[in-house]
Design a protein around this nucleic acid. Structure first.
Lengths: 365, 365
DNA sequence: CTGAAAGCGCTTACAG
DNA sequence: CTGAAAGCGCTTACAG
């Protein structure tokens, strides 16, 4: 084969100089036109058109690295999340990206668990990576009971917005109003004629979870129901009471015994005809275990979840649950972060954006 | 209040010059030490230690933009996905990131659907964004029936690796061996003594789906079972036969009628005692609809899914299904892309990496 | 090892 | 509008 064909070198992307040359103007003018600068109005439409045409023909895209080097923003946000694949967070991850893109920014995934390749302190690792990459700001959607030094994070990246209260002073975050969530559930059940509404929660030791009990009592009181402490099941004394995904098998496990005890206390002992569950996992497990006892959902006992998780459509009966409105949360978080990046951080009560949950009616209540 | 406190300016991150100065060496030496360059061995341990110490003390992190500007790789991969939040893909997204981080790279999320903010052709939008940002390569995990010009993608980004066959020539991709998946399912069912094993698929018009029928027939033949065409249900003639998530309500819908017809044909007419379902959604729907008819799973009819989707643990009974081994797929995709970036693209048969699925035993079969 | 220099592609401030 | 220049922080090639 003749060596007529020179080894095709990857063609260099067009630069601003190329565009300027092609359009017969100076770099400065080309830059002004492309960036929509103030001088834009000062140059003739003909000039502008020539620049734009050349830019298009050469498939010009401003070099991001060069822009950053002379002080422009990176237009990139870091996103800390325990694991982006976890459906518990995946929709929030997606919504954050969608909202970031809306203001011309990008999102960098950072899984802080399950990646020992980056060292033992993955959270810390990404804090430094974010510095190196020069992100404009950081979203942290890592549950507060996962490891990670949040103080170090906000110190190194003052522009950080959390999802849910990270438990450090002066943090900015969006958080679902859990009291309102339970009130929605209890209110709905009361309207459906349920008289003995139970509450099954994993724990009452964290403030965010206590809000549920408050909401529960408040709504009972509004409805003229008496509070009966036997109708509140707290999983905490029963040990590990949450769903858990095995790292290797990806198999979800759930402490069925705890749920059985909840049924024993709430339904068998206290005569509950409805249960507001800790979350959709609890609700799904309750539905299965109630069926195993021959108790019909929702006829005998109605069940309401919390999350509006993916699986809510696939339990049998489908789960009536509380949606956390991740989209609104994401919008709020992006708006907050953008203001911080622009040097206008929220103060006082504005640092916390409460998200109003919504009741999603399906079949279980 | 006295104006003693000057408005605290955001302190400039340390530069290589700062480190060199602090360590009392030239920028060149500092750079060599920090980058582990070849000259590293040429300088004394004392010098090295001084540089490393200074680097640590100043919390030095090489400026990414500057490095890129002088020709270094961005160490960033673009990741095209229909929607990162979709649990169908979210674990692949996570695995790709984890594997990318393992080789020192980062992943940029790019949701190609549901974000009209970036224009009508979101796929195209990201192709250009990737160019602008200077990603080293691209992962495309967008289902081939979603819109997007794959040819334009590989033309603009020769370093692109797909998940599943994108249907364009010379593409590099990892793809689950669907024939093997069905064989696993059929083999398991046969060993459990099932004699009338049905296959319910959404369509047989795409090559990737035909592989299932091939696998089905092959395994039947190995087991000495006769092929009975009544035991194959093709959803295609019955119209829309897949689960669908409403954009606004996030509510999943599934054409229950189609599943009912599948049960009618396979179980009632052809006497199936087992069904290999198109995917976990089909399987979950089959389980519900079988129960509605008083048919017990797995006693009367065993059901096997495909995906090992999140919901497999929450159907009742829990779903025996085929795991797609996203982790292995991600490893293969990252390895392939990395080789391409380094100028050593795979050729011929090496362009396609088949992923061997695994059977996950739960309760439904 | 040192040191001075060029260059990556852009933005910006400045003199005309 | 033009044009020449400086600078962002790094890497690299080069002369000592």
């Amino acid at each position: 084969m003749p060596k007529t064909e020179p080894k095709q070198k990857r063609k260099r992307p067009a630069t601003l100089t190329d565009v300027a040359k092609a359009a017969g103007v100076t770099r400065w003018v080309a830059g002004q036109v492309i960036n929509g600068g103030t001088a834009n109005s000062r140059c003739s439409k003909a000039t502008r058109d020539r620049v734009l045409l050349a830019s298009q023909q050469l498939n010009y895209h401003p070099n991001h690295a060069a822009r950053r080097l002379c002080g422009k923003r990176s237009q990139t946000f870091g996103l800390l999340v325990a694991s982006a694949g976890d459906p518990l967070r995946s929709f929030l991850v997606q919504s954050l990206d969608v909202e970031a893109v809306r203001i011309g920014c990008h999102t960098l995934i950072s899984n802080t668990i399950g990646n020992p390749a980056v060292g033992s302190d993955q959270f810390r690792h990404y804090i430094d990576e974010f510095t190196r990459l020069g992100v404009d700001g950081v979203f942290c959607a890592v549950h507060r009971w996962w490891p990670g030094d949040r103080r170090a994070l906000v110190q190194q990246h003052p522009c950080t917005v959390f999802y849910e209260d990270p438990g450090i002073p002066d943090a900015c975050y969006a958080a679902v109003d859990r009291a309102a969530a339970v009130r929605l559930a209890v209110g709905h059940l009361a309207e459906k004629g349920r008289r003995r509404i139970g509450l099954a929660v994993m724990t009452l030791s964290r403030p965010t979870h206590c809000a549920r009990l408050e909401g529960y009592r408040a709504e009972l009181s509004v409805r003229g129901y008496e509070f009966d402490k036997r109708l509140v099941f707290n999983g905490e004394p029963h040990g590990l009471a949450f769903a858990w995904c095995e790292e290797d098998t990806r198999r979800w496990t759930f402490p069925v015994e705890v749920v059985d005890r909840a049924i024993g206390q709430l339904v068998c002992d206290a005569g509950a005809d409805a249960i507001v569950a800790h979350d959709d996992f609890w609700a799904a497990a309750l539905i299965r275990r109630l069926r195993a006892r021959g108790i019909q959902v929702p006829n005998d006992v109605a069940v309401v979840g919390y999350l509006n998780h993916y699986l809510a459509d696939w339990t049998d009966p489908a789960l009536t649950t509380i949606d956390l409105d991740h989209q609104t949360a994401a919008k709020a978080m992006v708006a907050m972060l953008e203001k911080m990046v622009e040097g206008d951080p929220p103060n006082g009560p504005d640092r916390v954006v409460p998200i109003q949950p919504r009741l999603i009616l399906r079949e279980s209540a």
